[in-house]
């Protein structure tokens, strides 16, 4: 029985580390994404952008393997039976955010969207809001495992940043569609902006779920 308990403890510890690593990956990908967009705006598909884009892809792969390992371990070792379903959902929602960041970075790489210089500042602002939103999501999610009372604070930040990113993306689209650009370019830019803003929307969905888990855990 002591052997059993010892192995349960080691599984618990390993899973704790995997969950922490997944959160690290989210923070890392949001920072790399912010840098990649800045580089793209300056140099378009330069070698540095290619390097950053590859970096994003690698982080996404690592996060995928971590997610699978977390899910397998949760069920294989029968850990936290009452919250297993919720943690599974949370991990999958976090993964959706990571995938979306990877998709957007790849979209820049493939489509090589031409963003006129007059929109660069607003575009940077939008990217910063989205990136910060994702970072706060990662911290909120990490807090869910250690300090429930802190989740609400970070959730508030996520909501605020998502709202700000909505406003920025709306202003950007308004300016673009009011310009003299070709309709095709307007539509392509509008689509890129929507996808960047979608990252924050996914983070917001994730936080909505997280707050429900907090209430459930608090009962």
């Amino acid at each position: 029985m002591f052997n059993l308990k010892f192995s349960l403890f080691s599984h618990t510890k390993e899973l704790e580390q995997k969950i922490d690593m997944l959160h690290d990956k989210i923070i890392e990908i949001s920072l790399v994404f912010k840098k990649a967009v800045t580089v793209y705006l300056k140099e378009k598909r330069s070698s540095e952008y290619r390097h950053l884009s590859k970096n994003i892809k690698d982080i996404e792969h690592d996060a995928d393997s971590l997610r699978r390992e977390i899910e397998n371990r949760l069920y294989m070792h029968n850990l936290i039976p009452d919250f297993r379903g919720n943690i599974l959902e949370l991990v999958e929602n976090l993964d959706k955010v990571i995938n979306e960041i990877d998709d957007v970075a790849h979209k820049f790489y493939i489509e090589q969207t031409d963003i006129p210089a007059i929109y660069h500042d607003k575009f940077k602002e939008l990217t910063e809001q989205v990136s910060e939103c994702v970072e706060n999501l990662a911290v909120a999610s990490r807090s869910f495992f250690r300090d429930l009372s802190a989740v609400r604070d970070y959730a508030k930040k996520v909501y605020w940043l998502e709202h700000e990113s909505d406003k920025t993306s709306a202003k950007l689209k308004e300016a673009i569609f009011a310009s003299d650009m070709e309709l095709a370019q307007k539509l392509q830019l509008g689509s890129v902006i929507s996808e960047v803003a979608d990252i924050a929307d996914l983070a917001e969905n994730c936080i909505d779920q997280l707050l429900i888990y907090v209430i459930k855990r608090d009962i």
Partner: peptide
């Protein structure tokens, strides 16, 4: 609340 023990470790201790 005060110890900030990880959810998984809480589960282990409760078990």
């Amino acid at each position: 609340k005060k110890s900030h023990i990880h959810l998984l470790r809480q589960d282990y201790y409760i078990r």
